[in-house]
Amino acid sequence: MKVLQTPVRFYPFIGGVEQYVYYISKELAKYDDCDVTVICANEPNNVSKEQYNDINIIRLKYFGKIANTNITLSLPNVLYNEDFDIIHTHIPTPWSSDWSNIITRIKNKPLVVTYHNDIIGTGVANTIANIYNKTALKFLLNKADKIIITQDDYIQSPHLQNYKDKIVTIPNGVDTTLFKPQNTKRQKHQIFFLSVLDKFHKYKGLDYLLRALVNVKVTIPDIKLIVGGKGELLEYYQEKVEEMGLKDNVEFKGFLEDEEVINYYATSELFILPSISSLQEGFGIVVLEALACQTPVISTNIVGVADDVINTNSGIIVPPKDVDALADAIIEILSNPELREKMGYAGRKLVQEKYEWKKIAHEIHSLYEELL
């Protein structure tokens, strides 16, 4: 089977959708009967065609962005001229998903949509998002042969209510052969946060983590937050850190390669993802990666793995935007080495049993076979 994946961007661009597409494509390419091609914008890589981990990658020139979507004018023609059996596209990325919809209709081919989260915005962007949701999104979901959601709760999205008969839940995953404990020492009182630092990812909750850190510092003066990721708001966050008196407690590391990310997971005593928007937070793959590295986590009850974190006691789940609860959870875990060790083992066991990418890809491969 010839599969086209159409994210707006792709590895080495770092983001939740990009990670998802990379890992399922990498695993699907291992099947003898599966040929995987990713068509995306050439951000950040300018190479037009390449192969990586047996994934064929076609990168298209883009002409600016609308919201967080690269506009690749050649996409319709490239999709139409590709020989494929099925297209797997992704929401919230209009343009690439919409053209995938149109081309599969023209060629009478199956379309799979992974619905990662709702499309929303603020101000004018929110008005545009509402118009899109009432028009093009409906057109896309009507055509889709299968709609994948990564957590059961997302079926409550108002945009999915008419499509429950073709929705299936397949969670995100993690590569436990790559993300694993390292033979390195944990740095005392070091915590880790990882995200793109732009306005579209403010829902990851870094503002609230910094506010919580002010409270934590009273009890743990040498608390150290490592922030991985870059974006247009980097300077904004650096200024906030100065204003809040946290200059000695926060380090911004910019873009991190996989090896560096794994190192910070493995050398930190705690990973934190304090997401604040259930409409925008699709799952939280970084939580799984941290757990796979045997690192306890703190997150909020809107991430896809929250219930499993609670049930396995592999971290602490707090309400979104609750700065006091977040600070208390950080202090509780950092002050208890025995608790950290138990949580770490429980988290690693959880991802090995339920969230291996190999298992996730097998479910998606079976779904493709069913449609074909």
Rank of each mutant, 00 (worst) to 15 (best):
P7M: 06
V8M: 02
R9M: 11
P12C: 02
F13E: 06
G15M: 11
G15I: 12
V21L: 05
Y23T: 02
S25R: 00
L28C: 04
Y31C: 10
D32G: 07
C40A: 14
P44M: 02
V47S: 10
S48E: 15
K49V: 15
E50P: 04
E50G: 11
Q51M: 14
Q51A: 12
I55T: 05
I58A: 04
R59D: 12
Y62L: 11
A67W: 09
T69E: 09
P76L: 00
L79V: 15
Y80I: 10
Y80S: 03
Y80Q: 01
N81P: 00
N81T: 14
F84D: 10
I87P: 05
I91Y: 08
T93G: 09
P94S: 11
S97F: 08
S97W: 06
D98N: 07
N101C: 13
I106M: 10
L111V: 13
V112R: 06
Y115C: 08
Y115V: 10
N117D: 04
G121V: 12
G121Q: 10
N126C: 12
F139T: 11
K143R: 13
D145G: 14
K146D: 04
I147M: 11
I148S: 00
Q151D: 13
Q151P: 02
Y154S: 11
L160E: 07
Y163D: 13
K164F: 10
V168N: 05
V168C: 06
T169I: 08
D175K: 04
T176A: 01
T177Q: 04
P181C: 04
P181F: 03
Q182E: 06
Q182W: 04
Q182M: 09
T184R: 01
R186W: 12
Q187W: 05
K202S: 01
R211M: 14
A212L: 08
L213R: 08
V216P: 10
V218Y: 09
I220Y: 05
P221K: 07
K224M: 10
G228D: 00
G228Q: 01
G231L: 09
L233G: 09
L233M: 14
L233S: 10
E239A: 03
V241R: 13
E243R: 11
E243C: 05
E251H: 07
E251V: 14
F252W: 05
F252N: 09
K253N: 08
L256E: 08
L256V: 09
I262M: 03
Y264E: 05
Y265P: 02
L273P: 07
L273Y: 03
S277R: 15
G284V: 12
G284I: 07
L288S: 01
L291K: 02
T295R: 01
T300S: 02
N301L: 00
I302W: 09
V303G: 06
G304F: 14
V305L: 08
D308C: 05
G315E: 03
P320A: 10
A327H: 05
I331T: 11
L339I: 13
E341P: 05
L350A: 00
Y355G: 02
E363G: 09
E363A: 02
I364K: 11
I364H: 09
E369C: 15
